[in-house]
């Protein structure tokens, strides 16, 4: 039985869809079988962020209404093994599905996949309730800004009330701005929200550039944001993750010939 993780935030435009696409890709690259569910019904985006928009035949509402089987609505990402997308419907609205519909859909997907990542719409209304209904856990995405953190706090409260454990990703951090005293740091955000932290994604031009092409940053590999997404994916999957500092000292040790492993 797989795990269903909802990616949510309250506020729009903070990086939910970007995070869903990149964590899903990274988990698939680690060898897990992953399905991405776009729960933003009426405003679908995950398909274009993944670059799979030209392959949609059926969508999540078709699958729920039995117009096709769930497996038939899944689009296989051909760039790697193990990754599928269940697109949202663009013509229905959020009331087209109920939390019960979502719960049984996600339950079925968990039977065939290791990870079901659910891209939540902005807001805390029906779309949010649908998106969290089938989730075992949540990743809350917040940017280091007052409005985003305020909305995240609301969502954390609602998730707690629904018994969905939540962890935090801080997105679009700029080390320069933090150093200048003009941006909240990741530890400020953790202190305020009192949530376990999965990681912090830097503000990175590469995210915008790769998204333009319909390629998750993780697939292009080299950017700082991609590396952090990969670290977070490993942490989510329960792999040991080397903290940055250890990597540095290991490299330093190796350079000084102190390493136990032969060069």
């Amino acid at each position: 039985m797989g795990r269903a993780i909802v990616i949510t935030s309250g506020k729009g435009g903070v990086g939910k869809t970007t995070t869903t696409a990149n964590l899903g890709t990274a988990l698939a690259q680690l060898g897990h079988s992953v399905v991405l569910v776009d729960a933003d019904i009426g405003l679908r985006n995950l398909d274009v962020v993944m670059g799979l928009e030209n392959r949609i035949v059926y969508h999540v509402v078709d699958a729920i209404r039995g117009k096709c089987s769930i497996q038939k609505a899944l689009i296989k990402d051909r760039r790697m093994d193990n990754l599928w997308l269940l697109p949202a419907s663009q013509t229905d609205d959020k009331d087209a599905v109920t939390p019960d519909d979502m719960r049984s859909l996600i339950f079925e997907l968990k039977a065939t996949h290791d990870f079901v990542l659910i891209d939540c719409p902005a807001g805390i209304e029906q779309g949010f309730k649908n998106a969290i209904a089938g989730a075992d856990e949540a990743v809350v995405v917040a940017t280091p800004e007052v409005s985003s953190i305020r909305d995240a706090d609301r969502v954390v409260g609602l998730l707690a009330a629904a018994d969905v454990p939540a962890r935090l990703i801080v997105n679009r951090i700029s080390a320069n701005l933090v150093r200048r005293g003009d941006m909240l740091s990741q530890s400020d955000v953790i202190e305020i929200l009192a949530l376990e932290m999965l990681g912090a994604i830097p503000l990175d031009d590469q995210v915008i550039a790769t998204t333009n092409k319909g390629v998750p940053a993780v697939l292009e590999g080299k950017s700082v944001a991609a590396k952090e997404f990969i670290r977070i994916a490993k942490r989510l999957a329960g792999h040991e993750v080397e903290p940055e500092a250890v990597g540095f000292f290991t490299r330093l040790g190796r350079a000084l010939g102190l390493s136990a492993t032969p060069a």
Partner: peptide
């Protein structure tokens, strides 16, 4: 502005 944001958040929350 970072400290101001922190202070405002503690209050708003």
């Amino acid at each position: 502005s970072r400290d101001v944001a922190k202070g405002r958040l503690h209050l708003v929350l």
